[in-house]
Amino acid sequence: MNNCTTRAFEFLEGISPGSYAGLIRYTLERGGIVHSSPDCFCVAIPDEDDPHTVLILFQCSRLSALWRLAEMYRCQFTHVRFRRDFKNRYPERCVPIDKFLHKSSLAGRIS
């Protein structure tokens, strides 16, 4: 099985050649976060309207890895907004980062 970074590359390049590098460049130009590891690929930028909110532009990860990443940035951001139109055409969703992290403990208790 491919790791998350490879899967993200293949998915984005399948949409449009060069989109993987373009999204990383876009993120870095806006002072964003590029996280690339075997269990989590995530690109996010500070929200232009609210610098305490981080907008996840794209992520491919195991939820546990995304929760660890959110925990790392918990002091910098109060809310996390998910852009969900790449794959499922869902509207964006914004949640307090503490509420998002609380779900990690719920998942641990269920499993």
Rank of each mutant, 00 (worst) to 15 (best):
C40M: 08
E10F: 02
R25D: 10
F77Q: 00
H79L: 03
K103N: 10
R89T: 15
D50A: 04
S16W: 15
D98C: 02
E10I: 02
C75P: 09
C75W: 10
R74G: 01
R30F: 07
P46A: 03
R81W: 04
V43M: 06
E48H: 08
H52A: 06
F82I: 07
I33A: 05
C75R: 12
Y90L: 12
E48M: 13
F11W: 07
L28H: 06
V54C: 01
S64D: 06
L28P: 02
M72D: 05
I110S: 14
R62W: 13
S36V: 10
N3M: 09
R7E: 13
F9G: 01
T5I: 06
W67L: 03
P96N: 09
A21L: 09
K87F: 14
K87W: 15
S111A: 13
D39F: 11
Y73T: 00
I24C: 10
A70Y: 01
I56P: 00
H52F: 05
E48F: 09
A70C: 07
I56D: 00
N3Q: 08
C42V: 07
R74K: 13
S19R: 11
R109C: 11
A70M: 10
S104K: 03
F41V: 04
S36H: 07
C94T: 14
R89A: 12
V43K: 02
S61D: 00
R93T: 13
E13M: 06
M1T: 11
D49V: 12
D47Y: 03
Y26T: 08
E48I: 14
P96R: 05
Y90Q: 15
G32M: 13
H102D: 05
C75K: 09
C60I: 01
F86Q: 11
R30N: 10
Q59F: 06
P38A: 10
E29H: 15
L12A: 02
G108S: 06
V43S: 04
S19G: 12
A44D: 00
R109Y: 14
F86I: 10
S104A: 07
I33V: 15
G31W: 08
C42I: 04
I45Y: 01
H79K: 08
E48P: 05
T53W: 01
F11K: 05
F11N: 02
M1H: 14
A21V: 11
V34I: 07
T5M: 05
S19V: 11
Q76S: 13
C40V: 08
L66N: 01
L69Q: 00
R7W: 08
P91G: 13
R30T: 08
M72Y: 02
R25K: 14
D39G: 09
